[in-house]
């Protein structure tokens, strides 16, 4: 699995809000250096099975505003259409991995929800 690039509010609703399993959204921008440095780690985790979507806050500024993202990088975890947790700023790789853990397809939670 790779990181899903969200290109519209409609896609955000489908991929994130209506997801049956938890999803982590990476709010970022092209000009944000720390976001660029975080990106390869996010991609690696997505390839490892984590469900991660990316929102460019310049292209989808309404979403950034709606979820009160005021500093990036910002990782927001959604479950059942609602925010359940967030991490702002750069994090150690291990903590990012832990944060996205319950979005893993095959994690206990995911299996229960998919059953």
């Amino acid at each position: 699995m790779s990181v899903t690039e969200i290109t519209s509010a409609e896609e955000f609703r489908k991929v994130v809000l209506e997801s049956q399993t938890p999803v982590v959204v990476d709010f970022n921008a092209d000009w944000c250096g720390p976001c660029q440095m975080l990106r390869p780690k996010i991609e690696k985790l997505a390839e490892g099975g984590a469900k991660i979507a990316s929102v460019n806050i310049d292209e989808l500024d309404d979403l950034a505003e709606e979820y009160e993202v005021a500093s990036i990088p910002c990782l927001v975890k959604f479950a059942g259409g609602k925010e359940i947790d967030r991490k702002v700023g750069l994090l150690p790789e291990k903590k990012v991995a832990k944060f996205v853990e319950d979005t893993m397809v095959g994690s206990d939670e995911a299996e229960v929800e998919e059953a």
Partner: peptide, 14 residues
């Protein structure tokens, strides 16, 4: 991350 920032060039556009 909810209004307090240490990086103007990172967060200014908000």
């Amino acid at each position: 991350g909810r209004g307090v920032s240490f990086c103007a060039t990172c967060d200014g556009s908000f």
